[in-house]
Design a protein around this nucleic acid. Sequence first.
DNA 1: TTTCTCATTGACCGAATCGGTTAATACCAT
DNA 2: ATGGTATTAACCGATTCGGTCAATGAGAAA
Lengths: 201, 201
Amino acid sequence: MNEKFYNLPEEKQNRILNAGFRVFANNSYRKSPMNEIALEAGISKSLLFFYFRNKKELYLFLLKTAEELTRSYLSGTGCYQEEDVFEMMYQGLLAKTEMMKKYPDMSAFALRAYYEEDEEVRGELIKIIEPYTKLSTNTSLPKLDPCIFKDGLDLKMMYQDIYLASEGYMYQMQHRGPIDIDRVIRDYRELIDFWKKQYLK
Amino acid sequence: MNEKFYNLPEEKQNRILNAGFRVFANNSYRKSPMNEIALEAGISKSLLFFYFRNKKELYLFLLKTAEELTRSYLSGTGCYQEEDVFEMMYQGLLAKTEMMKKYPDMSAFALRAYYEEDEEVRGELIKIIEPYTKLSTNTSLPKLDPCIFKDGLDLKMMYQDIYLASEGYMYQMQHRGPIDIDRVIRDYRELIDFWKKQYLK
DNA sequence: TTTCTCATTGACCGAATCGGTTAATACCAT
DNA sequence: ATGGTATTAACCGATTCGGTCAATGAGAAA
């Protein structure tokens, strides 16, 4: 890709990124037209081809960017060193909402890329997401100290419960159109507190 | 549509239905090619146009069919007259898995249709899904008899919890590729029992 | 076999769309 | 004016699309 892309004002860079995320999220790779991306970004198709040599380059650039941004957002929140499972989940969702404010279709784009099968990009696509394919199957519950939970509580089921409900929240955020994000956060916080009262000693 | 479609052996009808569901679920209306649907159904494009005059007719037929099938599946299970909230949820998920066995992409198709904006079909599309648009915003909890639940339990939060977790299950079923459906049902049953022990007196 | 019926198809058409190129602009500082 | 850079309109060849139609195939009836 053309290094001059980074000289553009950040707002314009983001417009292009978001246009790409959105189009590639709604269509398969082959059926995502460059002209549609350009139109949505508010630039001409020619300019888009000026910054990115071809569609494949733009696609892989978007994927690499999504990966980097996600990683930086997650490490930004203290969601990893948090020892409280509930607060960890909360921080995770907080990070995701922050991302969705700035890049509304990025996660949908990443999810679709995960299943993209077009041979034109598949090979180099895998190299980027490969580290995460193993990680995703890691549904095993983190180490939980039984002492702090109520006696006789099935920790595995509890974790299933909060994990799936959180997944359900994310799902609603993505598929239920544009909604009041701050409202979602407040609701989720309520749920977290409900769980803590319910499951913690 | 051509009434002779119903004369086809049921297996062939379903192949065509499922091919349509899949293609229209993965692409927008405009970018769903008839030839791709025919290929996936194992018939020629000409034959597809013999049974359905044009793309619009096929699309609306699929939508109407999806609506009817869903309604019949839901009324098939006793999920409405069930008074136990947990068993109601369980029956609901059971019905959905049954559907996904026979029509794997139907619900994904219906969801995408819900947000389809193409003016060629939007008008008549709305007429079909309009009754459900109001119903979907109905997140209010059903009438719950507080007596059977543990004292001091926040019923609204409990319902949020189980509703979202169930949503999370559905999400996993649709987006996590082909998985062992019976395994999913067993896991969900476990979760239901966990909730009953947790929330019921 | 011949004939009739009807499901099914390959070949085709005009129009639109696609990825990508290029030569020309608009803009702005010197 | 001049030079350089950001940006675009116009264009191209190839492909794809929705849809049509004449022809083929298969099976039952004669």
